[in-house]
Design a protein around this nucleic acid. Structure first.
Lengths: 183, 183
DNA sequence: GAGATTTCGCTACCAGAAGTATCGATACCG
DNA sequence: CGGTATCGATACTTCTGGTAGCGAAATCTC
């Protein structure tokens, strides 16, 4: 009854990790719009059709890439509320500062604002896990946690969009302290 | 020696306002990517070439449209620091909540992250005026004012991108209080 | 009014990108 | 070996950003 019932036929080659890496690299080098699926496929050394067999659209590919990049928060049992917030913000700042991540994020956002399906994917697959963990770790309401996520991620992305560079340490510290005061 | 020396030839028809209105409307209805210059021109009843004669690229058009939409802050002489922040945030929230504005903003951002020229336009024409006014009104350093702008605009945009809806009043109020506490 | 100048709408065009269809080859299961 | 699903490769359609070239219209100067 397990899922060990493999479907027949040639199995998919396991290239997801390479595809994600190549996607971020290409988005970093060329920007979201010029990071074509063709180029990404070529960078991996697979055919474009192989990409489209796994992810139905470019937006879905980029979103999956972001979900893969943003792993679980590195929290520890003894963390205080302030520790949790500080670690979460520094983690987010570090991830968004990685090459290509901010551009990919902004690109998906642009599509998501006018695409309910993509927004659903983004909200469910990317935001909800952090929402749950933070609710648990902080003992705060869903509304307040969502507000904090808006502030943290929004601020970091806006800085990247306006300056093209990650937020500098003093501002990250200010962000942490502001949020800690808020909760 | 004034600028009254009109250049010869047929003068430009004054359709900027109509173009901006049609741009926001089209972006609102179709999203940033599907809001083609063709469609915008058709909505105004003007040829596509007329659009490109005024704005060199789609990104420049949208940015100009945003600059036009975000007018001056409605501040008054007697405003306290808290008044200034509250008014600025409510003003930003209202503007970003207007149909098409958030989608346009996010779209320009996406391009700007990997386009230094567009980033320069965005920073200079859209952000700098508010930066100056707020520095003056609040007596704060450039760094702190830029930080506040990142937080406010970033938060409001992230909420729009994730939910597709403007930030609700309780959260706007929380944002205002958080910023007031921060300064 | 005549001429110069510039924008107008229109059409045609190009390069590039998303996504689809097809086909022979290939890898795995039983 | 037979069945099946994926593989790479190629070709294709549709759409979009942006450019080029045209005659017509509008305005200024003389």
């Amino acid at each position: 009854m397990s899922t060990s019932t493999r479907s027949p036929g040639r199995p998919r080659s396991s290239v997801d990790a390479e595809v994600f890496a190549a996607t971020l690299r290409t988005v970093h080098e060329l920007g979201y719009t010029r990071a074509t699926v063709d180029r990404i496929a070529a960078a991996v050394g697979v055919a474009k059709t192989t990409i489209y067999r796994r992810w139905p659209t470019k937006g879905a590919l980029i979103t999956a890439c972001l979900v893969d990049t943003f792993g679980p928060l590195p929290l520890e049992p003894g963390d205080t509320r302030d520790d949790v917030m500080a670690k979460a913000i520094r983690y987010g700042a570090a991830k968004i500062g990685e090459p290509g991540v901010a551009a990919a994020f902004a690109g998906v956002f642009t599509d998501a604002i006018s695409d309910p399906d993509l927004r659903e994917i983004l909200s469910t697959q990317l935001q909800d896990p952090y929402k749950s963990v933070l609710q648990e770790a902080l003992g705060e309401s869903e509304q307040r946690v969502l507000f904090v996520i808006d502030v943290v991620i929004g601020t970091l992305l806006h800085r990247m969009g306006m300056t093209g560079r990650p937020m500098v340490e003093p501002d990250v510290k200010a962000l942490i302290e502001m949020i800690q005061r808020q909760l």
